[in-house]
């Protein structure tokens, strides 16, 4: 067969290059990564809590939380000085391509499990940074993007109200009325379901409602479309969602966020290359 002969002779570098293999550095332990070192606590029990989150080990995270609480560590410190720091490290590893989506999900699961133990001791849920309402456009059943957005928001200390998929526009408006979120997120895979976004923006305006940011993204959604209606900010990656919400919390308007998107999310974003 020609394919086998060609495989012996061809110089593959002249056909393609696997840049992911080429740029791969030596394997290092997550805790030795310089960006992780910056956020990783050095004192116990916080280091163990953070490490359990970094390794996405729910059992160890729960164990470390129980043990810290038994020894008198304040529940809020368990969360803020231990678990949350582990999640910060995970975000750093993800942003640089050392960690992948499943790593983040397992870390988020570990953090959630251990946080529940700490919150039980605290007697209430820890205070959240703010509330975000998330939905998938009416007529659209594709929700993996929305699920990621919700996960990233929760892992970063936001109250994420998940309205689900195929959500009627009126239900989105009602949720904005009820929760007064700092950000609304809408996702759609299809070009024809994304038309729900301007309709929602219009309905909010008609009812005298607004949100600081209406982050929209997914499949066929593009920046020029999202920027064609008020409040719309085109969200490129799910993990940008907490950064956008934090910007809104800090008082930035949707117009500011549109202008400063790459700066706010802290990385090069091709879709906003003209605004770097």
């Amino acid at each position: 067969m020609a394919l086998l002969d060609w495989a012996k002779k061809a110089d593959f570098d002249m056909i393609f290059k696997r840049y992911n293999v080429i740029i791969e550095g030596p394997a290092i332990k997550p805790e030795d990564d310089p960006d992780v070192k910056k956020v990783l606590p050095t004192a116990e029990p916080f280091k163990s809590l953070a490490m359990a989150v970094i390794f996405g080990d729910s059992e160890k995270a729960v164990q470390a939380a129980k043990s810290a609480l038994d020894r008198g560590t304040a529940p809020l410190d368990v969360i803020e000085k231990g678990l949350a720091k582990g999640m910060d490290a995970v975000s750093a590893l993800y942003a640089k391509g050392a960690y992948f989506l499943p790593d983040i999900m397992l870390s988020a699961d570990a953090m959630t499990a251990a946080m529940q133990v700490a919150e039980q001791k605290l007697g209430r849920a820890r205070e959240k940074k703010g509330t975000v309402v998330s939905f998938v456009a009416e007529g659209d059943p594709h929700d993996i993007g929305k699920n990621l957005v919700v996960m990233f928001l929760k892992a970063n200390g936001f109250e994420a109200i998940d309205l689900g998929r195929d959500v009627p526009n009126s239900q989105v408006v009602d949720a904005v009325k009820k929760y007064k979120p700092v950000m609304l997120t809408g996702t759609a895979l299809m070009t024809t379901t994304m038309t729900a976004f301007p309709k929602v923006a219009e309905m909010l305006k008609e009812q005298g409602l607004s949100v600081p940011v209406f982050g929209c993204g997914g499949g066929a959604v593009k920046r020029d479309f999202v920027e064609s209606y008020d409040m719309g900010v085109y969200g490129v990656k799910a993990f940008h969602a907490p950064k956008l919400a934090e910007a809104a919390l800090a008082g930035k308007s949707f117009k500011d966020i549109r202008k400063e998107y790459p700066k706010i999310v802290g990385e090069f974003v091709a879709e906003y290359a003209d605004r770097m």
């Binding site: 020609a2 394919l3 060609w6 393609f16 696997r18």
Partner: peptide
């Protein structure tokens, strides 16, 4: 036809694991 088929296949057969898997043999 078979030559062109193999050229099509060979350009991507080792570009990515999924290409390796889907190469017709």
């Amino acid at each position: 036809a078979k030559t062109l088929r193999d050229l099509y296949t060979f350009t991507d057969m080792f570009r990515d694991p999924q290409g390796t898997l889907l190469a017709y043999p």
